[in-house]
Design a protein around this nucleic acid. Sequence first.
DNA 1: TGTTAGTACCTTGCGCCGCAAGGTACTATG
DNA 2: CATAGTACCTTGCGGCGCAAGGTACTAACA
Lengths: 113, 113
Amino acid sequence: MDTPGSLSTALRRGTLEFCVLALMEQGEQYGVELVRRLGAERTLTTSEGTLYPLLARLRRAGWVETTWRESPNGPPRRYYALTQHGHQALRHFREEWTAFRDTVDRIVGTRAA
Amino acid sequence: MDTPGSLSTALRRGTLEFCVLALMEQGEQYGVELVRRLGAERTLTTSEGTLYPLLARLRRAGWVETTWRESPNGPPRRYYALTQHGHQALRHFREEWTAFRDTVDRIVGTRAA
DNA sequence: TGTTAGTACCTTGCGCCGCAAGGTACTATG
DNA sequence: CATAGTACCTTGCGGCGCAAGGTACTAACA
């Protein structure tokens, strides 16, 4: 609760999975690539120990489908693509997120100019 | 992860405590009053089972101090006020939050117009 | 005096999720 | 056939929001 890194960790909760869905919206993604792309965002940086269980949950929820494809240099990759339910979940999140964001901005006084 | 209510629940994680700090910034608050004020915000509505452990953590972290005061109609109330560390923590959160918020907005495509 | 309703504080046990650490396996290179 | 690079996944832990339950003070009314 007080270490600097753990603050962003707590913020990621409940948001990370939808950022992952949003990345998949742009096209099929595989695990290691997602870790790299999230790692490029300071506040979303995560590890495989977080991502793979998350992806498994998305599959169980029926929000993504996967297909194995060969890699040009390495073992095969499991590619993830959004299902209709996944698109729907993402749309729902966008509504919840904007409402939540606006409320927090108002209460803590960080409303965007 | 899929029930509508639990989405906001997950979002609250890591943010609620700073919303509480922000409310205290406006002046001393006591527990039940905080529950009421948070309850007025749909996306922040919470219960005493959440709030009191949270307040205990804030005390242990040295971010708040408390004083007992009598109530005009009922048992005494424990009033919470920010310490210097509390103000500092809130300032730090504001930076982290705006960075996090902007990143999420960009990735999920909810950037404010 | 007892009882009830209102107010206010707090605890217990559960479930979920992000994380560090560790593990398996495929491919190419020398 | 050993080593390095890539890619997948699991295990155990800690923290927090929550529902449910519990204690205690005050006032009103019988």
